[in-house]
Design a protein around this nucleic acid. Structure first.
Lengths: 342, 342
DNA sequence: CGGATGAATTTAAAGGTTTTAAAAAGCGTG
DNA sequence: CACGCTTTTTAAAACCTTTAAATTCATCCG
């Protein structure tokens, strides 16, 4: 029982492999009757299309690389879901890389993609990625689109939530509730997302004429644990260090709430807390968490769609650079509260 | 600037492509001096190894399929991390599928894997997968290993936590605290995991001479939302329906705790709650959640390692069927409490 | 009826690597 | 210098598909 290939079928039916190839792809060059016979024979014999062989010839592999910082982070997991859904409907498959913000890992993966003859890469670049890095990738023949994060100076379409606006919205919401001492926890200056959210935060303060106090901004990892620690650091000396906290993301915010509670401070009553991303947990944490819906899945979907468009050539150069900012939505929940009356 | 291939280099150096191919793979057949020259030329000219071409010849693609129910579930995300780490160190790449317990999606993906000439597949099978399905996959040339879930009757190595034992341990822990009315929430009878955990639960009850009450077992999805709903269903009529709850997983347990609290029942004081999997959230939820560490990452790593071993032939038939049960560990936290005195 | 047209099919090359058998080169020996 | 032996190198086939160009064959038109 040797492997069934085009020529197995061709032989069996007494036609050429070219005919078989064309027939299976429904080419109008082949007579209907022949197509029938061929297709029947193919499915009967359990023929399996050999993409490696095909792509060797066509130099189109149907593989798209997806590079994200960390799939354990629901934010990126959700983006991935969006990408997967979209690619599923377009005969493309993706291979995945978690770079954990290690440039080397990212670089390594790009190399692998090239070896596989990947058609393109959807990238949430690692901290420290330069515009030159991106250019290098592109000039080696891999089209790039960004998702969630992007790199300054790289002329590449980017799909992401409007972080600055979202951060502005949630900060503004807290200000409107009467807060003046608002802290910002988490996010690294090095990531575009971190920068944008911080900017939005600062913009809201400024607009309300509130002076920004550097002590009220703590950078950190983007994990629950980091949130827990940051909250304890900030509030252990001064229980009224701030009356509200904007967190870089929900994971952090949930950690922050635990941290507060461990100090006997009740989030949503003593101190208002807000997160970002609106992950599933936000709705079910205790208290439920005010957050900003950021359209991760949508971003993934759009990025994948854009990539497919680029690959199928059904996109103008213009189109490709039409960065799509997904409009964030504020989700107000129990963790929002006015400042405690003194 | 045409693409650099073996023959580009061969031409430049006036040797044959065979020599170049062998040299780049460090074959002892090539003289050291020649190797030097060739390697130098390769890196200078930016040669990229073409895996499609190679794998066409060798029928080894270096691709491994990974099939899990849902990456949004941290349980599976963690398995994935284990797999990725392990594969990273062994020149293999994986392509991913979320089947969402749809057999069709799983089947589809297997087809894709075959087209790509994948070397094997690491599978957390969809509900309803039969031993025949697995046999079909294997007989089409894809070695299979299971991770987390498995299929009865399929002679395939499986790497997973000892669910039965873990469920036994956590139930036993609650019994020792004095509980007699213990509920079990979540999990589907159709998954191996669901079954095993339920069995462990029942075994602990039986061993303690506690009668199992069917009303205290609710099957459900494995999400936070489902936990929330289940808790409300169970406790809304009778606030003392049970004094302790064992949940199928942490996600559910966190939902259950929220559900309880929404009824004014305080988890960890009024009712003991325990989860399973020990995901990161368990440590940081409020109250922190008693759970069972199940070694997801370890399971992923072992599964990947086993697959690589199978592929490199460095494994006896014996070895391959040495299913590895990872020993669970009980993590007792605040959500454990004795039954409320009446 | 010769030649043009068009449809259906085939031929042959190309794509880049690996591998096997065989050739070549080098070298010491008798 | 012929011989055998080892070390290097090579030619060529194989892997399977796609595609441009060529071929066949029947039909149609003037």
């Amino acid at each position: 029982m040797r492997k069934v290939t085009l020529s197995t079928i061709a032989e069996e039916l007494g036609v050429s492999t070219a005919t078989v190839s064309l027939a299976l792809r429904d080419s109008p060059l082949v007579a209907d009757a022949t197509k029938e016979r061929i297709k029947e024979a193919a499915s009967r014999s359990g023929y399996i299309y050999n993409r490696r062989a095909a792509s060797l010839r066509t130099s189109r592999s149907g593989i798209i690389g997806v590079v994200v910082p960390d799939i354990m982070n629901p934010f990126f997991a959700e983006i991935l879901v969006g990408i997967e859904e979209e690619l599923g409907s377009s005969r493309h498959t993706f291979i995945l890389c978690n770079h954990r913000d290690k440039i080397a890992a990212q670089q390594n993966f790009i190399e692998t993609l090239l070896q596989f003859g990947a058609d393109g890469v959807i990238l949430s670049p690692a901290i420290g990625t330069t515009a030159d890095d991106i250019r290098a990738i592109e000039s080696s023949g891999l089209p790039v689109v960004f998702v969630a994060r992007w790199v300054k100076g790289a002329r590449v379409p980017v799909f992401r939530g409007d972080d600055k606006k979202g951060a502005y919205m949630v900060t503004r919401h807290l200000i409107e509730m009467g807060h003046r001492k608002i802290a910002f926890i988490g996010g690294k200056r090095e990531t575009s997302t971190g920068n944008d959210r911080r900017e939005g935060f600062l913009a809201a303060l400024e607009q309300a004429g509130i002076e920004a106090v550097p002590e009220l901004r703590i950078g950190s990892e983007r994990t629950r644990k980091a949130g827990y620690d940051a909250a304890r650091t900030m509030f252990s000396k001064d229980r009224e260090a701030a009356t509200a906290i904007v967190c870089f993301n929900d994971l952090l915010a949930i950690g922050v709430m635990s941290g507060l509670r461990s100090l006997g401070i009740e989030p949503g009553r003593d101190v208002a807390v807000a997160g970002y991303d609106d992950i599933a947990e936000a709705e079910i944490s205790a208290p439920t968490l005010t957050s900003v819906w950021n359209g991760q899945q949508e971003a993934g979907r759009l990025a994948a769609r854009a990539m497919v468009r680029i690959l199928t050539g059904s996109v103008s150069e213009e189109d490709a650079h039409d960065d799509r900012l997904i409009q964030p939505e504020l989700r107000i929940r129990e963790s929002s509260c006015p400042p405690k009356p003194v």
